[in-house]
Design a protein around this nucleic acid. Structure first.
Lengths: 344, 344
DNA sequence: AAACATAGGGACATAAATAGTCCCTACAAC
DNA sequence: GTTGTAGGGACTATTTATGTCCCTATGTTT
C-alpha cells in the first residue's frame, strides 16, 4: 500500500488539523496533569470552549479522566500518545514547515507541496493548482489580476479552475518579451483571461529599453491605460528566479550581468533584482508594475520551488503582509536549513 | 508503530467516516461516469446538497472533473481509488459489519467492539463503556431504567460515566436471585443508581416460584409498585445468554432443562427462552418485566459478546425497532457466518 | 475554621458550517 | 425545436461549534 498518510492527505486533508489539535491537547494534559480547562486553553492558545469540546471527546474515548481536581491522562491515553508521536512527526512535517516559513518569511501564508520540483514534474503542477485554487478563493467581481511570466506562473494558469466572477481583468505585471513565448507574461495573461472568461490587456514593450524610449512609451495612450490598470491590481501573481539565471534569460549584456552579481544580486522577481538582504540592487528597464505600489496590493502570490530557489525566496523581501508563497518541500526545507546556518 | 488506522479510529473517528463517505462517492462516480449530481445522490442515498459539497471537494483535490455532461474521475482519482481500496477494507471492516448486522437483526443500531470477549477481557469492558455512553446519550430527566443481571450488564454499570439528570429511577427488569451476588440485577440496579445519583427500587423475589406464590407476591404493595415502575421503563438494558448455560446457572431442574432444550431453546434474555426462530419456548416463573411490554419500550440495549453468543443473539427476536445491540467482533463475524450458511 | 482559588458543568446567545430546496442556463439526444 | 439532464447560484433552515458567564464542589491557604 502506498503510504497511508499521504493518501489521507489527499482524500481527507482535514485529518491533519484535527489529529494535531487533539494530540496537542492530550500531550498538554499529560505534561500538566492534573490540569484545569482554563489553564489548558491558555497554555494551548485555544478558546476555552474549543478545549472543552475536545476534552469531552477525549473523555468519551477513554483517553483522559476528569476529576474535580482536574484532568488526567489514562493508561490508554498514554499509550495512544506514545503511538501517535511517530505519526505526528511524519504528518506534521509540512504543516510545521509551513508555519515556520510563515514566521521566517513574514508572510500571510505559506503553502508547501510535498516533493521536489526538480525531481518530479507533477510537483510543479501541484504547486500551480494549489496557487490557482487559492487565487480563486480570493477573487471577487471586478478584480484586476497582474501576473508575470515564467514556468511557475504558467502552471498556475494551466491549472486554473473555472471561475464565474464578472468583470475580471488580467494584465501582465510588467512589459517585456522573454525568450519563450509560451511562458511570457503577455501570453499567460491572455491564456488566463481566456480560461476564466475575463478581459485582458497587454503591454507590448520589450525589456531593456533606454530611459528616453521608456518615457516616450509611457505617454502612449494604449500603454498608459494598461499601466494604470496594473497599478490598481488587486492580485499579483509572480514567480521568483535566481539572479544569475534570470539575468541571462532576460538577455542582459555580459557587463551588466557581472555588475549585477557583484552587487550581490541573488533573486529576481517582476524585473527587480534583490541581494541577500532583500535590498533592490537593479531594476530591469521596462514599464509596468512599480515596486512602490507593491506593498499596497491586496493579495500577492509568489510561486517558486526547487532547492536552488531557496536563497532567492528568502531574498525577495516585499513588505507586504498579505503575501502568500507557494513552494515545494525541497525549497521549504532548504530555506529552513539556510536559516539555521544564518543563526549560528 | 501500532497500526495507523486503529490509532486513528481512536483519536479521530470522525475522519474515518468522512473517508468512507468520500470513497463511496468517488467509487460511485467511477462506476457511473459520466454521472450527474442528482443521480448520484439517489444512488448513494445521500442528500443532494451533501453530494454537492463532497463533489466540490473532490474537484478541488483534482480527483474528479466536472463537465456539463456529468462528472468523471481523473487519472489521479483512479489512482487514489485503487490505493484506498485496501485501506477501506481494513477500516470499514467493523462499520460495514455494523450495517450488515443492523439489517440482518432488524434493529436500530449495532455497535461492534473490535476483538474477542473470550480472548481479551478488556473487550468486555469496552463493550460496557460504549453501551453506557450510548445509554447516557438517550437519558433525560425522569427516565426509568430497567436492567437485568449478568457479566455484560455488570460492565455497563461499571463503566457508566457521570450523569447529571434528575429523578432517574433504576429497577431490576425481573425478580430473581442469581448465583453470583455481584452480577445480580438487584445489585447492579443499586450500583448504577449509586453511580449516577439516581433512585432505585428492588424486587426481592426468587426465581422459579410456583404460580400460587407468584400471584401472592404480585399483590404485595411493595412489589406491586416496583412492577408497575418496571412496566413503565424508558430504557431496558439486558444481556443475552445461551439457553444451555443460562438454564443451568438459573438453577432449573435437570428435567426442565432437558425439556427446554428439546423444545429448541438456544437463547435466554430477561428470563425468556427463545428457539432458533425467535419464538418463546419457556418463561422463567418470576415477576417483573412482561414480554408484551417490551415492544413499547423506547430504548432497548442488548449487550452480549463472544463467538458462542452469536446464535443466541440471532434468536433473541424482540419486535422493537428501537433496539440497540452492543457486541464484539467475534460475535458479529460469527453472526454473519451463520447468516451466510442459512442462506444456502 | 474561614476565605480563597481553581476545578468541571450548565446554560444561553451567537457565529459558522452544513443541508434542503428551488430555479436557471447550457448542452446533448431525439 | 423539444426535452431531459447536467452543473451552478442563491436563499433558507437547521445543526454544530464557539464565546461567555455563572454556579457549585473541592482542595488549599491563611
Amino acid at each position: 500500500m502506498k503510504n497511508v498518510l499521504s493518501l489521507q492527505q489527499k482524500i481527507v486533508p482535514e485529518i491533519i488539523e484535527l489529529l494535531l489539535k487533539r494530540y496537542k491537547i492530550l500531550k498538554c494534559i499529560y505534561y500538566n496533569q492534573p490540569v484545569g480547562r482554563r489553564a489548558l486553553s491558555q497554555e494551548l492558545d485555544l478558546g476555552e470552549r474549543v478545549v472543552r469540546t475536545e476534552v469531552n471527546f477525549l473523555k468519551e474515548q477513554g483517553l483522559i479522566e476528569i476529576y474535580s481536581t482536574g484532568m488526567t491522562v489514562t493508561k490508554d491515553g498514554e499509550y495512544i500518545l506514545e503511538s501517535l508521536e511517530e505519526m505526528i512527526h511524519e504528518i506534521s512535517g509540512l504543516a510545521d514547515v509551513e508555519n515556520k516559513l510563515k514566521k521566517i518569511l513574514e508572510v500571510h501564508k505559506v503553502i508547501v507541496v510535498p516533493g521536489d520540483i526538480d525531481e518530479d514534474i507533477t510537483v510543479l503542477k501541484e504547486m500551480g493548482r494549489l496557487a490557482a485554487n487559492y487565487i480563486k478563493s480570493i477573487m471577487s467581481n471586478d478584480t484586476i489580476i497582474a501576473l508575470t511570466g515564467g514556468s511557475s506562473v504558467s502552471q498556475v494558469v494551466e491549472n486554473f479552475p473555472k471561475v464565474s466572477k464578472e468583470n475580471i481583468l488580467v494584465v501582465p505585471a510588467r512589459g517585456g518579451i522573454g525568450r519563450n513565448v509560451e511562458t511570457q507574461a503577455s501570453t499567460l495573461a491572455a491564456k488566463l483571461a481566456y480560461k476564466i472568461g475575463a478581459n485582458y490587456k497587454l503591454l507590448h514593450v520589450p525589456d531593456n529599453l533606454s530611459r528616453e524610449a521608456l518615457g516616450t512609451m509611457l505617454n502612449e495612450p494604449g500603454i498608459k491605460d494598461v499601466v494604470q490598470n496594473i497599478s490598481k491590481a488587486d492580485i499579483l501573481i509572480f514567480g521568483i528566479g535566481r539572479a544569475d539565471e534570470m539575468s541571462k534569460r532576460r538577455g542582459l549584456e555580459e557587463a551588466e550581468i557581472e555588475e549585477l552579481l557583484s552587487k550581490g544580486a541573488v533573486a529576481e522577481a517582476f524585473g527587480y533584482y534583490f541581494d541577500k538582504g532583500g535590498e533592490i540592487v537593479y531594476k530591469t528597464p521596462t514599464i509596468g508594475l512599480d515596486f512602490k505600489d507593491v506593498p499596497n496590493i491586496k493579495h500577492i502570490v509568489a510561486v517558486a520551488g526547487g532547492k536552488g530557489k531557496a536563497e532567492a525566496i528568502i531574498a525577495t523581501k516585499i513588505n507586504n503582509p498579505n503575501m502568500v508563497i507557494v513552494t515545494d518541500e525541497a525549497a521549504a526545507k532548504e530555506i529552513l536549513n539556510l536559516q539555521r546556518v544564518n543563526k549560528r
